[in-house]
Design a protein around this nucleic acid. Sequence first.
DNA 1: TTTCATAATGAATAAATATTCGGTTTTTCT
DNA 2: AGAAAAACCGAATATTTATTCATTATGAAA
Lengths: 153, 153
Amino acid sequence: MKNKTDRIKFIRQVCLENNVSSQEELLSILKENGFNLTQATLSRDLKRLKISKTLTPQGLYRYVVPLSTFPASHSSEVKKIGVNSLEFSGHLAVIKTKSGYAGGIASEIDSSSTSAILGTVAGDDTIIIVPREGFSREEITKSLTKILEESEH
Amino acid sequence: MKNKTDRIKFIRQVCLENNVSSQEELLSILKENGFNLTQATLSRDLKRLKISKTLTPQGLYRYVVPLSTFPASHSSEVKKIGVNSLEFSGHLAVIKTKSGYAGGIASEIDSSSTSAILGTVAGDDTIIIVPREGFSREEITKSLTKILEESEH
DNA sequence: TTTCATAATGAATAAATATTCGGTTTTTCT
DNA sequence: AGAAAAACCGAATATTTATTCATTATGAAA
């Protein structure tokens, strides 16, 4: 019996690589691969992954993985080298960095694809961060902290 | 009694402007506006429009109109290569692109001289778009869709 | 106009998906 | 460790959505 993390990853993988069109179908694939669960759990997993059924241009149904989902992890409290400050203005967040660091750090943020952050643009020592609507400053801060920690090793 | 074409247009409009989360809800909006139909027909209409229920980052369900089904001046259904998504946050719009494409696409937007868009800045895979005051999200979406389609040949 | 084909639609139903409920396990906090 | 809280999950169920079936409208061709 495999654990939840593996299952979630596997579901994501299957939806990326195959053309799954219903939960029943996905469920049987999962069972073939040794994951034992019910449709109820699968429905919840899909919700966690924000995977939803959409229509292809051909009019077929298909589960698609949004770009912004990622496997979560835990945090301590280290701070990224090069980052000087994080401050909010209106609904934007701004990170000030050492000169020349902005681009590199911004791309780490981009590649983390946390759902809290819609996108970033960087100058030389400044990163403008556009949060997704509905996320609080606290949530944004948490996400950023986590990202900047994780990239530290 | 209004006709099918009007109804379809209206459905798209409502899904763009409101946060509809079920067919029942949409149905009652339609009825309030003089459209008389059943859930069966609505389901078919949504399928025609390729509108599907997706999950917001907050975990709420919502019907969304795909970028590619907007009525364009030239109705090529082609979506701009490199563009992954368009989303709004506050009064800004953000386009996510394939890595490295943001600059090129942003300059196409800049040179389009649409009155709806004040300016853009681009990172590596993100374009932040600053709309002109007084333009709705829908108008911005339409403008962008048109620009990205037109630049396709 | 009549005929034939096609599209549109609603009622009923099937199919698919989300959630509630209760029990269990896991994590967190002291 | 032990209590409290939170996460997890299946069974059953509620809800939501797609489709089938039958009927009526629409339109094109003879």
